[in-house]
């Protein structure tokens, strides 16, 4: 076997399956639930405070998201958010704070290659696909919405 044949590949994959460490599914789910939940609780608290400060309820969502992004960016900068992500998995990646981390972390990393070819060019290496396909999807949906409504 040098480049394994399909049959050898399969035999090895079976062998490997038996030796693979188990995925800690239960604890991963619980940790994602706690982390994601806590981030949402913080978001809700910020929103309630904004409302108490007199911002109308339907106008408070935007500033709340902005504040969460700033907090996440700061935590990424201080080297804390990657630890939260390692603990919480999708619970930390899915909220808007995870998106902010996905942009700030390459920006920090590649700043060393300069502001144009480093930071500027590579800031969206992780978040880029989300933006590209998010924009494509919303354009398509918007087009059909326009057609159907018109």
């Amino acid at each position: 076997m040098l480049k394994a044949s399909k049959k050898e590949e399969k035999r090895f994959a079976n062998m490997q399956e038996k030796r693979k460490p188990p995925v800690p599914l239960g604890s991963n789910l619980i940790r994602a639930f706690i982390t994601g939940g806590l981030i949402c609780v913080v978001g809700q608290a910020i929103m309630e405070i904004l409302k108490m400060l007199g911002i109308p309820p339907d106008g408070a969502a935007g500033p709340t998201a902005a504040i969460l992004i700033v907090i996440s960016a700061l935590l990424t900068g201080f080297g804390v958010y990657d630890d939260i992500g390692r603990f919480g998995g999708m619970g930390a990646a899915l909220p808007i704070t995870g998106f902010a981390n996905a942009i700030v972390s390459p920006a920090m990393e590649f700043k060393r290659e300069g502001f144009v070819l480093g930071l500027g060019a590579r800031m969206f290496t992780v978040a880029g696909p989300v933006l590209v396909y998010g924009l494509v999807t919303s354009t398509v949906v918007g087009f059909f919405y326009y057609l159907l409504k018109g």
Partner: peptide
């Protein structure tokens, strides 16, 4: 990490392998 995988401060959860 930065060459083969993700930026060092990126919050990903690595698999057990």
């Amino acid at each position: 990490e930065r060459q083969f995988r993700f930026p060092t401060e990126f919050a990903n959860q690595r698999p057990m392998t």
